[in-house]
């Protein structure tokens, strides 16, 4: 059990992302091949690739949080005295957490609405709630990653090196 959790903690987002990215690339590649070699345009390929892409983005956001590699304006931290910097960073992490939680909640509401209206995708006939769930799942993972990040920051509050690594 612990092994499984450990694996999920280390590789969950990465594995999902790499799979989605590969599938998406291959589908588009096949689409080109089908059109130019077999003179047969696929009707579903573009749509499926696009849905992989949407999922890739939002799982990718969580992956970015896990690696702490999101694009930030770190220079702004210089505005604060050294003593306060760690707290500023924690407030920043908490704001991300708040935003992610907000997206999860409103995303569930939106998905529920889509489900009520029974919308389906044009080419594959896929119920659209499966696509609307992408930001919900992605940002739910962000919530988890942010809790880990805040925890980590609090634990290393007095460890000066942590901020310089950023």
């Amino acid at each position: 059990m612990k092994k499984v959790l450990n694996f999920l903690d280390n590789y969950l987002e990465e594995t999902l992302c790499v799979t989605l990215m590969s599938v998406m690339t291959i589908i588009i590649f096949i689409q080109v091949i089908m059109r130019y070699i077999f003179h047969n345009s696929l009707s579903w390929s573009e749509e499926l690739a696009r849905y992989c892409f949407i999922w890739l983005i939002y799982i990718g956001v969580a992956y970015g949080c896990k690696l702490m590699k999101h694009i930030k304006i770190d220079a702004a931290l210089k505005l604060f005295p050294d003593r306060i910097k760690p707290y500023v960073v924690i407030i920043g992490e908490l704001l991300v957490l708040v935003f992610a939680a907000y997206i999860v909640v409103t995303g569930i509401e939106l998905t529920y609405k889509q489900w009520l209206f029974g919308k389906t995708s044009p080419a594959l006939g896929l119920p659209l709630q499966y696509i609307n769930l992408a930001p919900v799942v992605g940002f739910a993972l962000v919530v988890i990653r942010q809790i880990q990040a805040v925890w980590y920051r609090v634990e290393h509050l007095h460890d000066k090196k942590e901020l310089e690594v950023e």
Partner: peptide, 19 residues
């Protein structure tokens, strides 16, 4: 357009519809 009816119609005519 990405629309099953349009796609079906053009395929029936013998064209190669491309969204």
């Amino acid at each position: 357009m990405e629309n099953p009816i349009h796609l079906k119609a053009w395929k029936a005519i013998g064209a190669n519809p491309t969204p």
